[in-house]
Design a binder for these strands. Sequence first.
DNA 1: TAAAAAATTTAGGCGACCCAAAGTTTACCG
DNA 2: CGGTAAACTTTGGGTCGCCTAAATTTTTTA
Lengths: 254, 254
Amino acid sequence: MTPVDELSASMEDYLEAIYHIVTAKQAARAKDIAKRLDVNNSSVTGALRTLSEKGFINYAPYDVITLTPKGHKHAEDVVRRHEALMDFFTKVLCVDRTEASEAACKMEHAVSRNILDRLIRFVEFIEICPRGGETLIQGFNNHCRQEGNFITCQDSLARCLEDLKQRQKDIEGDLLETAPLNDLRQDQRGKILKIKGKGGISKKLAELEVTPGSIVEVIQTDTETGALDIKVRGYRLSLSTEEAAKILVERSGN
Amino acid sequence: MTPVDELSASMEDYLEAIYHIVTAKQAARAKDIAKRLDVNNSSVTGALRTLSEKGFINYAPYDVITLTPKGHKHAEDVVRRHEALMDFFTKVLCVDRTEASEAACKMEHAVSRNILDRLIRFVEFIEICPRGGETLIQGFNNHCRQEGNFITCQDSLARCLEDLKQRQKDIEGDLLETAPLNDLRQDQRGKILKIKGKGGISKKLAELEVTPGSIVEVIQTDTETGALDIKVRGYRLSLSTEEAAKILVERSGN
DNA sequence: TAAAAAATTTAGGCGACCCAAAGTTTACCG
DNA sequence: CGGTAAACTTTGGGTCGCCTAAATTTTTTA
């Protein structure tokens, strides 16, 4: 038997599925899990027993299933690994979502803490770095497609220079000012400069190792309440306007 | 039972081990495989039987083990996946070799053809692209380390511009000329412009989907015979001077 | 060349998965 | 309140990958 706080790849899959179902609805039922993972109901029962024995879920026969705090934390971790791979595959390698998701599912169990962190930061970096961004990815795609009529290094360098100069022009003056996070619109990104206050959101972010320098992306904004869904260091978080106002960012030129 | 020409993750591990042992010595013995994979000798026998039944290895009890053509091809594929991940982790993410190797071992079985291809090309691209290369990786490392005293996007952009201008100066004139592959020294890289001839090496490279535009890296040169070990599209190949002379490349500014 | 040593295979077992089929429990409706 | 459909669990059986211990074959060496 594997140790109490470790999970096999397949148990992590179950936990992940439960996490998603619990997030969408209130509690999970065995049938949902079976359908999601495309396994037999009876396999689910066995998995639930194991997860329950190890303290990841609250489970009693015929009862609904919820995550324990420990289970929730672990599930978040798995999801984070999945999303990090997914982001890398789709945003950097430009692989289509279906294929990316499939590969991410199989690979997510093997990513170490350190590699996960580097990967998340790499995607961040490519998206935010002035020489990265869309044009870098375009260059990459061009590199992939080239069959004979490719461009030489020299030409490529010249193009890059043009691109960067253009960008410098765009930025000069106004685009890259300092702003509170709640000023950012959907899909905009920024680099955290400062997090005001001590408790509340500041503490929460510190726990997730979100510090000045981290890149934040706004996933969604609620036009009524002003609440924000953001993505930072691979985590998805929801912030109120007040919380977001405490986070000072440098807008990314995007 | 899995289909005849598919292998489970663990069988791929065995095949990979056999490939490495056969490459190093002439033929493999069960004991070498057991030691390499840190499994019991008897587990090896079972695996050998399976691999033999599926036609990946030549095997008879008490006899030495060699790869069939099919096995050789599949093994090369696994190794290529492993190396591609390894390269990405070490060269791009700057993860240390031990950790990278461990993760690559676990992930290599889940990489699809397409993602593998994109990944190999991405590492190539990052290394060869004028805005990529060492300074991009440096920038990434800087981004990872930043704890408070990070640089702003504006400064970062300015730095990149400086860097690219400097590079353009370096290149102007002589560094980036056209040369036959055998002119490249160890660790140099180049972009294939043309492959002369029809049969022999030209055909071999075409089979591996190595075309003009592909990036070649010289791994080792034999000073006596002039033979080259190269890496291209994730494959490691050995070429004679004559073969290498048929491949025209544009030197990379490295 | 015969025994000792080493390498290899066989036999049997275990744990982690999975499924199909059969048996329980729950929820809902007339 | 019973009946039934849906949801859930249990049972029994199979695969895969690994292990140990014992038997067998090959190699070494004296």
